[in-house]
Simulated scan of single mutants.
Amino acid sequence: MTDFFTRKKNELQIKLNEVQQNAVMQTDGPLLLLACPGSGKTTTMIMRIGYLIEEKHVNPKRIKAITFSRASARDMTERFKRFFPRHPPVDFSTIHSLAFTITRTYLQKTGDAFELIEGGGKGKQAITKSMLLKRFYKETLRDDCTEDELASLSTFVSNVKNRMIPFNEWEKVPAPFDKAGSIALKYEQFKSKTKGHLLLDFDDMLSIAEQALRVDEQLAEQYRTRYDYILTDESQDTSLVQHRIVEHLV
């Protein structure tokens, strides 16, 4: 029987170098693949998944691949289908999609209803993140915010959440303009003011998922035991809270 790399070279015209081959075959314990853009990290990752299935006989359902944009998730799904058309699909998703699944499970357990206020979704949202930030900007600074200020404020809120900075430190974090920390706090307090009903933006999905995996051992075990292998693409783009979610899972 020809070896895995020879078969794939013949089938796909893909030839991996020695370092890439070593990365594919390193299937026990943690592995960091560090290389410059365009050097074939994602291809190596897809080949590693195929190696796990064909050579290590791992069930594709026991493999989770995480990336950080929907475009990347689609690209990896399509590449896997092209490289390994005979195998069942592997679970490729964005970190936000994974976090949303964990958050939804956790909030069902706690009995909290939730409403997404970012991303559009189906129908027209009664409340949006932008609407709330504009309202609290005006309440705080007695003026209307510009589109640039709104964008910088939204980025500020996302940044402090992704860095897992405690609420009581938000007003001390360097901000794009005066009182941005106070506005961000008002925004957060409003979203949870109705008991049993939360307003969530995209970053809340990450924060709540991390919290769920940290404090609910039963739920954490449920997700930890779902997969035997977890691979993340473009890990350099991982924020602290995203990295913590992956840490909890492994």
Rank of each mutant, 00 (worst) to 15 (best):
Y137I: 07
K186M: 10
E169R: 11
K81A: 08
P174T: 06
R226Y: 08
I63G: 08
V58P: 01
V24N: 05
T128C: 13
F83Q: 07
L132C: 14
L133K: 05
T110P: 05
K15H: 02
M47F: 12
T103I: 03
M164P: 00
T105Q: 14
R62T: 06
Y223D: 00
E247T: 03
K61V: 09
R86D: 11
A220E: 00
T6Y: 15
A126S: 10
S152C: 15
Q236W: 07
Q242S: 11
F202D: 11
I102K: 04
I14G: 00
L185G: 07
I117S: 02
P85I: 07
D91N: 13
E188Y: 06
S97V: 04
T194E: 15
Q13A: 11
Y137Q: 05
R48N: 07
T42R: 01
H96E: 09
L213T: 08
G119S: 13
L200R: 01
T103L: 07
H96L: 13
L153R: 01
D144L: 13
T155Y: 06
T44F: 00
G119M: 12
F177V: 00
Y106W: 13
L12C: 15
P37Y: 03
A220W: 01
A175I: 03
R104Y: 07
S154R: 15
A35S: 14
G40N: 10
V241L: 05
P88V: 08
A99D: 03
A113Y: 10
G119N: 14
A220G: 07
D148W: 02
Q211W: 02
G121C: 13
M76G: 01
R224F: 08
D112H: 12
I63Y: 04
V173K: 13
V19D: 15
M47L: 10
V157N: 00
R142M: 06
S130I: 05
D28E: 14
Q242D: 07
D201C: 14
E247P: 00
